[in-house]
Design a protein around this nucleic acid. Structure first.
Lengths: 198, 198
DNA sequence: GCCACGGTTGACAGTTACTGACAGAACTGT
DNA sequence: ACAGTTCTGTCAGTAACTGTCAACCGTGGC
């Protein structure tokens, strides 16, 4: 039994998912701060202690699921052609954030995420961690293309930060517009206003 | 007696400053998480309750002082010529972050700020709040220059986010280099790698 | 069918960041 | 000196965590 697919691991993920969905409903319904861990535990019929066995922190119940998308994002980035402009490659990272499947809850989720101070802060920090991983891949990519960045060259980090900044700006703009149109279009518009100097 | 300069207000700021400095020393010395509010209160000889009368949260002891720089930043931005490229104007916002006067503590402060998860998250969120104010001024500026942004144009927010992203990237790069050179130079290098599409 | 075992769970106690209430001390303007 | 405001410490309470431990439960060996 490897780590990936044991029964234990599967049930664990199922429980985690169930807690996450119940918690998100409560957060959307009555607000993040007004929802206690005990409320969430009661909603899924377990003790507070057990909820903390599945999520390290309350914020993690919302932003923790982003960890799962990181390997996919990195794989996406690695699979892009080496000659493609960096900005284009970075834009492809954000396609998976376009929340396929639940159009009506996407807005409510975004609202809770961006408008709850504690959650928004946790989200921004998580994005920074993702950026660290992305920068590493960008460096790999430049190495393989025969044009490695100097170790102290801030370019990959700065360009990545600019792209993620555009992402957050797009999410804000999209929410402000009442979630009119697709989030993907909002990201496109935001990223069209800035570009790396090649 | 107006709000600005009464004796009460001055002593209040003095106490706030004293708490801030004592807390920062402790954070640098033994780490943010390992320092309790009671430790800080004891260091300045007051009760825990009183510390919370000067700072809303523990993170605020570190990032709260940024609030004071916001009006200055906005004034700086407003005083820039309207024809100046936005990117140049934004770069001028960051000059005041170059920490004049305390070169050796600047590195330690940055390290605590960027390497303590809770603090880093609070810092990123604070930067977002500053960005909101900056975006407003950019819109004012465009209005007065006779070329207003459309209400749903993500450009000012995206460009601002990109600039602040470069700032954070520069801070990371500067720290990673062991604080070699000035932070201002690091910001220049980071911002040189990206530019708005005019 | 039974038992040993690793992982899971709930109950409990403890720490820490915060908040509200209140009474007394200190300070301010007159 | 007095009245009103502000500051302060104390106390009690909430909520997010964390460690501990005994009971429980599904899996595999016999």
């Amino acid at each position: 039994m490897n780590v990936e697919s044991g029964l234990r691991e599967r049930t664990r993920r199922a429980v985690q998912r169930e807690i996450g969905e119940a918690a998100l409903s409560l957060f959307i319904e009555r607000g993040y701060d007004a929802t206690t861990i005990d409320d969430i535990a009661a909603a899924v019929g377990m003790s507070q202690r057990s909820v903390f066995r599945y999520f390290a922190t309350k914020e993690d119940i919302v932003v923790g699921k982003m960890d799962a998308t990181v390997p996919v994002m990195l794989q996406t980035l690695r699979s892009r052609p080496a000659e493609e402009p960096v900005w284009t490659s970075l834009r492809h990272l954000f396609f998976m954030l376009d929340e396929p499947g639940r159009p009506q809850t996407a807005e409510a989720t975004h609202r809770v995420l961006l408008e709850t101070p504690a959650l928004f802060a946790a989200y921004l920090r998580k994005l920074q961690l993702i950026q660290d991983a992305v920068v590493e891949v960008l460096r790999e990519r430049a190495d393989m293309a025969g044009k490695p960045y100097a170790v102290d060259d801030p370019a990959p980090r700065a360009v990545t930060a600019a792209a993620f900044g555009c992402l957050v700006a797009a999410q804000h703009a999209w929410l402000a517009s009442g979630a009119a149109g697709s989030l993907g279009d909002a990201i496109d518009r935001a990223m069209a206003t800035v570009a790396p100097r090649i």
